[in-house]
């Protein structure tokens, strides 16, 4: 995966999303559904809190994944 220096952040995020979809589309959907929580701005303590909040959401979302892993 290569980011295009001339492209906008949003365009390069689309590239990242496509790469994530190739890795595991279900997990990619979960990641991008909760990306706002994860990338909340703040100092170190607030960033740690953001990761904890993100993981809380991940726990619930991962639980709802189908039992058979998507290849």
């Amino acid at each position: 995966m290569d980011f295009d220096p001339a492209a906008s952040f949003e365009d390069n995020m689309a590239v990242f999303r496509a790469e994530a979809d190739r890795l595991d589309p279900d997990c990619a959907r979960i990641l991008f559904d909760n990306l706002g929580t994860l990338s909340r701005e703040g100092d170190a303590a607030r960033s740690r809190q953001a990761i904890q909040d993100f993981h809380q959401a991940i726990l619930a979302a991962v639980e709802a994944l189908p039992d058979t892993p998507t290849p």
């Binding site: 994530a20 890795l23 990619a28 991962v62």
Partner: peptide, 14 residues
């Protein structure tokens, strides 16, 4: 573990 594999790989590629 499926999530761990995914996020590890996705973060590394990013």
């Amino acid at each position: 573990n499926r999530w761990k594999t995914f996020i590890t790989s996705a973060a590394q590629r990013f």
